[in-house]
Simulated scan of single mutants.
Amino acid sequence: MSLTIRPVEREQWQEFLQGISRGSLFHRWEWQDIIEAGFGLKVNRLGLFDEEGILRGVLPLAERKMSLLKLGGSSLSGTATPHSGPLGEAALPEVLSALEDYAAQKHFDYLELTLPDLTGKEIVAQQGYTVEELLTLDLVLPQDQESLWAGLEVRCRNAVRKAEKSGVEIIEPQALEEWLEPYYALSCGVYRRQDKEPPFTREYFAALWQKLYSVGDLVVLLARYEGKIIAGGIFPRDKNVGYYLDGVSDRDYNKVVPNNLVQWEYLKRAQALGIELYDMVGANIPSIAKFKKSFGSVERKYLYAYRNRTLAARVGRTVYAKHAGTIKKFLKRS
């Protein structure tokens, strides 16, 4: 079966996603709106059509210009989108062939893809992509709170108790103005402690709230201690899958372990919402992976692949790998 890639209107995109049984947040039309607003890029909402014009899959392809290069990704690095790629019943070889035709037509210099597991690794590599295995952590939620609590490691349960006994309170904001500024300040602090430019803008956080909270698909939790906001987390969902999208904290208050309590309070809410799977999004930094595993989550490998389609892209990626920090700071100022 040969495929053709072309843009899809919102109604057809939405109808296709409604037929998918498991949640897929990062394929939602609203998610593309969020990253367009938050990162200043364009997302091409593409459909995978067979010879009879039947829609067999969808592919959100983010597009960004970097100097003279045209970059495309599903997902594209730096867009807070850990999982994306083609979604649907179309066979991967046909999808990759159609994507190559589209990329040539639209003059993309570089492509990135993420795929949910490792089954397509050899196929993607054969198409000229460099393929890497990445990790996330999944937690299947039991139906009762007692089992949920029992699934936490002892050290995690002790940390939750310590936070509660120390007087840490968990707040669930009901309006954007209740959390945006304190959360954004903590986010900036997290990255600046690492001498990095904060990747998230106020516009990104606001778009998350505006697009997802109004339909009941976003939970934001803040930890307050002695009248001060010291930590927080952002937890969107789609259907029966919840995600740990982002978390922040003030390390001066690590002694009262607010992050453990934030996670525990979210897990209880997730159960009440009928969420069956909690994707904790990322396990490639050992210290963060250790924290996430303490809640009972297990590793799942998925694929990240990239392809330099032009010589300029090959040279550009080499330069970027060596000088990424300097380039990011320059782009931030310009």
Score class of each variant (00 low, 15 high):
1 M>C: 02
10 R>A: 15
10 R>S: 13
12 Q>R: 15
19 G>N: 12
22 R>T: 14
23 G>F: 01
33 D>V: 04
34 I>A: 08
41 L>F: 09
45 R>M: 13
45 R>E: 09
48 L>P: 14
52 E>K: 07
61 L>P: 13
61 L>C: 09
64 R>H: 10
65 K>R: 14
67 S>F: 15
71 L>T: 10
74 S>P: 13
76 L>N: 06
82 P>R: 05
99 L>I: 12
99 L>G: 13
103 A>I: 11
104 A>G: 14
107 H>N: 15
107 H>C: 06
116 P>L: 06
118 L>P: 00
122 E>T: 12
133 E>F: 02
136 T>N: 07
145 Q>E: 15
145 Q>D: 12
149 W>V: 03
149 W>E: 14
151 G>V: 01
153 E>I: 00
155 R>N: 15
157 R>A: 11
160 V>Q: 09
164 E>F: 05
173 P>L: 08
183 Y>D: 04
186 L>H: 02
188 C>H: 07
191 Y>A: 00
197 E>W: 00
205 F>Q: 06
207 A>D: 12
209 W>A: 01
210 Q>E: 14
217 D>I: 01
218 L>S: 05
221 L>Y: 06
223 A>W: 05
226 E>R: 14
227 G>A: 08
229 I>P: 13
243 Y>V: 03
245 L>V: 05
246 D>Y: 06
251 R>H: 14
256 V>E: 11
258 P>V: 01
264 W>K: 02
266 Y>C: 04
269 R>T: 04
279 D>W: 08
279 D>P: 07
291 F>T: 01
291 F>D: 08
292 K>N: 10
292 K>W: 13
294 S>K: 08
296 G>H: 07
314 R>H: 13
322 K>F: 10
322 K>M: 07
324 A>T: 06
325 G>Y: 01
327 I>M: 09
327 I>P: 14
